[in-house]
Computed example of a mutant assay.
Amino acid sequence: MDEKTVLATFDREMRQDVRPDGPGARVERVGGVVRQVGAEGHGWSAVLWSDLTEETADRAIAEQVEYFASLGREFEWKHYAHDRPGDLGERLSAAGLTPEPPESLMVAEVGELSTDAALPDGIELRAVTDEAGVDLMADVHERVFGTDATRLRRAVMDRLAEDPDTIAALVAMDGDEPVCSARIEFNPGTQFAGLWGGGTLPRWRGKGIYRALIARRAQIAAARGYRYLQVDASDDSAPILRRLGFARLSVTTPYVYQP
């Protein structure tokens, strides 16, 4: 994989030419910034791309803060290490945005990944197709990450109801207990499918469940003709992904503004 070329393709397809990530969201292009305004009440709002210089950056940041503040919206400036100017992160902090833990942008070619991964005895994968399945997925998310999954639950339900071809979610079950969950989101018109939300309950880690969910999602992506899988990987998942054949192309840091 030509990492420089793939990163440029990712920037163009997934950031510059991005489409709304679900029902009710809209993408706006204003000057050197591409932003998403999420669905009312639960959608994710963010600046996804910027083409700025040292001369234009501070004004563009102030304009986005003013815009989202006028809507009463929290938003995230999704900053990548290769974005310009080189001190963009410092400028975002100076403007009142708070950096959250950085994640590795990792990409793999679907055709190069092994999809042969066995689940432990007694564990089965269940497709999420209805409200009951979404509740199982959200339960794992809250227990693993310690965050409220209300917004996630509503967003997934919206997509399953209105745009089901753009998402597939899975839950690993130990009998009636969900122990791991993850989803894959498809971006029509691009070469990339995104892996999101992968998390395993502590006592089930190290048994190959997370890897099995990656393999299953790679199979789904291949069947739909996607060339690449993309992950914003935490420090916990990055080593697993690297062993499976993913390459780190950049580092992304969410800078969050609270109105």
Rank of each mutant, 00 (worst) to 15 (best):
M1V: 09
D2P: 14
E3L: 15
K4H: 05
K4F: 10
L7N: 13
A8C: 11
F10Q: 04
R12G: 03
E13C: 05
V18S: 11
R19Q: 14
D21K: 12
P23R: 05
R26F: 07
V30W: 02
V34P: 08
G38V: 06
E40R: 15
G43C: 09
D51F: 12
E54M: 08
A57N: 01
A57P: 06
D58E: 09
I61F: 11
F68L: 07
S70E: 04
L71T: 01
R73M: 02
A81P: 10
P85L: 05
D87R: 13
D87H: 12
L88F: 09
R91P: 08
A94L: 00
G96S: 09
T98A: 15
E103K: 12
S104N: 04
V107M: 04
E109F: 07
E109D: 12
G111V: 12
S114H: 08
T115W: 09
D116P: 05
A117D: 02
P120L: 06
L125Y: 02
L125Q: 03
R126W: 01
V128F: 10
E131F: 07
D135C: 14
E142Q: 15
R143A: 15
G146H: 13
R154A: 14
L160W: 07
A161R: 15
I167H: 01
L170Y: 04
D174P: 05
V179G: 11
A182E: 06
E185T: 12
F186C: 03
N187F: 07
P188Q: 01
P188E: 00
Q191M: 10
A193D: 01
L195N: 03
W196G: 01
G199I: 11
R203I: 13
R205S: 10
K207P: 10
R216H: 10
R217Y: 00
A222Y: 10
G225M: 12
Y226R: 05
R227W: 08
Y228H: 07
D235T: 08
S237R: 00
P239A: 01
F246D: 04
R248I: 04
S250P: 08
Y255M: 03
Q258G: 03
